[in-house]
Write a protein that binds this DNA or RNA. Structure first.
Length: 835
RNA sequence: GCCCGGGUGGCGAAACUGGUAAAAGCGGCGCCCUUAAAAGGCGCUGCCCCUAACGGGGCUUGCGGGUUCGAAUCCCGCCCCGGGCACCA
């Protein structure tokens, strides 16, 4: 016998799949398209190609591939494509360091990913492969940008942005972690710059409400997104600075406390600050404070325990509810990013305002009484955030604050001093990057077409796309985009007037590239359009999306936003891109997250080389429930490898002894026993697969089947009918393990049954064989286990009770006591309650 | 502080709607095969106690209560670990 040789088996089947293009599927209207077949779009998040794939990739694609195979064998036409999220910082940082063009390093990495995906035997439709860094792809990323621009969903504005001094680039708030650059760890500073934004906030409400359209997403991912959007209801109220004729709207969730406002605070980044203090005695102090606040990291500013600081502006605004003038301050506890960047301060009912009032000796005015009217009228118990009757609030006195809430807003709205408002924590998506390795933003700046010295923003016409990324020599960002150095490229013609114009030198955030790739797969060779509607309409939405939970917020939210915007523009028919989401857990090594700096990374190629892809894939699916993380263990890999070898050996033995049975023998009970085990395994594997992809127990069931076959095999080689049972059990084990170990399974199936296992329908359990003649009767006394007795499966309650009472051990525990209650669970259990 | 997960043998885990806690795997121990090793096979393996043995008893799912004939599972309170967010007006 040959022994299990994964190298040979895996090469053989990979070649078959490549030559026959087994996993390619046609679009509607293409040859071979079968409209009667239900479709299923199974998609794993596309990899970012940097270096080599790691075990996280292996897990993601092993899990996705198992699902794809399972669906195919249930009669679905499965779309299962692959691509590369190829723009991004690491390749560019590498270029800055080594001078190697990002394209070359990226292509090299893609080659490695591609080769390994093939070596893992992942069932991919390679005809649809894409890379987001190719002009054929980013041409359409630019096309989408222009559509958003036309709709006013892409806009340019000066904004205070987080600036990473090391990368010399702007960071989205989402990319700042603890006041530091998410990627390089440098402390972030504030800067004002012209930036491109996508207006995702226009979609805040729909991003919330359309959770209802999803079939199945993990609840905790939905919750995280909901918190991220951060919807809160309240009112917008206008405070007016009469001296300067300026209106300051504020957002408040507590309009009921308006009469308690005793001062007014602006964020240090507030755009009107300059005007408010210019030429006044406060100017110097305010400027100094603002500069200091800007220097301070978000981290220190965020520390709640530190004392409140601020500077009076020497100006005042009018409280619209009572006409009172209240003083203005600048203070860093007010954030420009939330609400309007200005607040009315109600020290009596907000702890932060209270602390500030104490520090600056400002009046504190109670306008809501506490539950205890005695203690609650004076300053005791302040700040008081709770409910109670209104006081010191004019016509609203005596009313419950909750009732007054709406009335006050209505009253203000009547003469346009305020209105109900909804505020979101979600901010617009900053998409421009002062970086080389990304898709160029397809606009030019033309002075001729502009007015008042400001150049016009002129979109590049569709027929001139793509705006190709030029070759450059120096990738380092020196305060401006590296693209600015490509002067010949920057200098262009205005598409509108034909005069001289300059190209935009910023590129797009890579999250833009990955916000629509799942649509491009459906028509990735189309050079006339981003996609054909019939293809998109047929395949979308993605039926099963698989990826790491670390993308729970950003990527998933951006892709949802793109889908909605493109649907509104008439380019897509669906509102949600991903009907079902599976968030897989992270693989750790020695309990810690793998990272190159810790030196605890695990390269899949090493294990594929030593044990074969089937072992590596099956192991990552067997480690534990895939949605949870797991700790990589070399011993565990060997255990799985032993199991696959046992299956292989079983196959070889069945083959070798086939036909050598004594035909005069009729066979014994073991055949039925093994068949029952096989059908049990089919049933268990199928149910666990469907119940949230519990692959660990699916594989455990197949292990049990293989063990049982080995245990019974010597008794089964004798008679032809028994041999048939053994063959069936072995082939069934192969069939069930196929989604995880496709090469071995294909080989075993072919040897035992002929043909191709992936063309077989998923096996069905025979209900007759799932039944058992006897059941184990569990006998308890006072809920404690006292005996187990085999009884006939159809035993009546009477019979169960009689049998239970006959047990010697049970009698011992009943001795001298009175049975006060008998609990009988048919076919399972008897509990005798005694006193 | 808030939000989301999680806590079960030596380890990662299993237990479908409340009904035998610990399936399958790893590790460990013992044995068989072998000149030997590897591979393979067989058996044992939660903790404590009684028994020469057969057998039997007690305890055990982070901790403390509760509901129930019966709780890993349901309810209340608490502790610990991981992840996310945080002066959000």
């Amino acid at each position: 016998m040959a022994g299990y040789d994964p190298k040979a088996i895996e090469a053989k089947w990979q070649q078959v799949w490549a030559e026959e293009r087994t996993w390619e599927v046609p679009n509607p209207g293409q040859p071979g398209f079968d409209a009667s077949k239900p479709k299923s779009y199974v998609l794993e998040m596309l990899p970012y190609p940097s270096g080599e794939p790691h075990v996280g990739h292996l897990k993601c694609y092993a899990v996705g591939d198992a699902i794809a195979h399972f669906r195919r064998r249930h009669g679905f036409e499965v779309m299962h494509p692959m691509g590369y999220d190829a723009f991004g910082l690491p390749a560019e940082n590498n270029a800055i360091k080594t001078g190697e063009p990002p394209r070359e390093a990226t292509e090299r990495s893609i080659e490695s990913f591609r080769r390994q995906f093939r070596e893992w035997g992942i069932s991919i439709d390679w005809s649809r492969e894409l890379g987001t860094h190719t002009p054929e792809y980013y041409r359409w990323t630019q096309w989408i940008f222009l559509r958003l621009f036309e709709e006013g969903l892409a806009y340019r504005t000066e904004a205070p942005v987080q600036w990473c001094p090391k990368d010399a680039t702007v960071l989205a708030n989402e990319q700042v972690v603890d006041g530091r650059c998410e990627r390089c760890g440098t402390e972030v500073v504030q800067r004002n710059l012209e930036q491109w934004f996508f207006k995702i906030t226009d979609y805040a409400e729909r991003l919330l409400s359309d959770f209802d359209l999803l079939e199945s997403w993990p609840e905790h991912v939905i919750t995280m997104q909901r918190n991220w959007i951060g919807r809160s209801e309240g009112a917008e109220v206008v405070f007016r600075c009469e001296e300067l004729d300026l209106d300051f709207p504020v957002f408040t969730t507590r309009p009921d406390t308006l009469f308690g406002a005793t001062f007014f605070v602006l964020a240090p980044e507030h755009p009107e600050l300059e005007r408010l203090v210019a030429g006044t005695p406060a100017e110097e102090a305010v400027r100094e404070y603002v500069n200091q606040a800007a220097r301070e990291s978000v981290e220190t500013r965020g520390d709640e325990d530190r004392p409140k600081t601020g500077v009076p502006l020497g100006r005042s605004v009018v409280n619209p509810v009572n006409g009172e003038e209240i003083p203005m301050f600048v203070a860093d506890y007010v954030l420009m990013e939330y609400g309007t960047g200005a607040i009315m301060a109600v020290p009596a009912h907000d702890s932060r305002d209270y602390e500030f009032a104490k520090a600056f000796d400002l009046p504190v005015r109670r306008v809501i009484e506490g539950e205890d009217p005695e203690a609650a009228r004076d300053e005791e118990g302040l700040p008081y955030p709770g409910d109670g009757p209104m006081t010191g609030s004019g016509r609203f006195d005596g009313k419950g604050n909750r009732d007054a809430y709406a009335e006050i807003v209505e009253w203000l709205a009547a003469d346009e001093r305020g209105k109900t408002a909804v505020n979101y924590r979600l901010r617009d998506w900053l998409v421009s990057r002062q970086r080389y390795w990304g898709a160029p933003i397809p606009v030019v700046y033309c002075d001729e077409c502009g007015e008042e010295g400001a150049p016009a923003i002129v979109p590049v016409p569709d027929e001139q796309l793509p705006v190709e990324l030029p070759e450059i020599d120096d990738y380092a960002p020196q305060g401006r985009s590296p693209l600015a150095a490509a002067e010949e490229w920057v200098a262009t013609q205005c598409p509108r007037c034909g005069g001289p114009a300059r190209r935009e030198t910023d590129t797009m955030d890579t999250f833009v590239d990955s916000s629509w790739y799942f649509v491009r797969y459906l028509d990735s060779r189309n050079s006339e359009a981003a996609w054909d509607r019939s293809a998109a309409d047929h395949w979308l939405p993605v039926d099963q999306y698989i990826g790491g939970v670390e993308h729970a917020i950003l990527h998933l939210m951006y892709a949802r936003f793109f889908t909605k915007a493109l649907a509104d523009l008439g380019h897509l028919a669906v509102q949600e891109p991903f009907a079902n989401l599976f968030a897989q857990g992270m693989i750790t090594r020695d309990g810690a997250k793998m990272s190159k700096s810790k030196g605890n990374t695990v390269a899949p190629s090493e294990y594929v080389e030593r044990y074969g892809a089937d072992t590596a894939r099956t192991y990552v699916c067997f480690m534990g429930p895939p949605e949870r993380g797991g700790d990589w263990s070399d011993e565990g890999v060997e255990g799985v490898n032993r199991f696959l070898m046992r299956l292989w050996r079983l196959c070889e033995e069945v083959e070798a002894r086939a036909g050598r049975a004594d035909t005069s023998k009729t066979g014994g009970d073991e055949a039925r026993e093994l068949l029952a085990k096989a059908h049990w395994a089919i049933d268990k594997a199928t149910r666990d697969f469907e119940r949230g992809f519990q692959f660990n127990t699916v594989i455990a069931a197949v292990m049990e089947l293989v063990n049982e076959a080995h245990r019974l095999k010597e008794d089964l080689f004798g008679a032809p009918r028994d041999q048939e049972a053994l063959r069936f059990a072995t082939a069934t084990a192969a069939s069930l393990i196929f989604p995880f170990a496709p090469h071995l399974a294909a080989e075993v199936w072919e040897r035992l049954n002929g043909g191709r296992v992936w063309e077989q329908p998923w096996p069905k359990a025979d209900p007759e064989l799932l039944k058992s003649d006897t059941v184990t009767l569990v006998v308890q006394v006072n809920g404690k286990l006292r005996d187990r007795i085999e009884v006939g499966a159809g035993a009546s309650e009477e019979e169960m009770l009689t049998t239970a009472r006959e047990s010697e051990n049970v009698r011992r525990h009943l001795d001298g006591k009175e049975v006060v209650k008998e609990v009988v669970v048919p076919g399972k259990l008897v509990n005798l309650v005694v006193k």
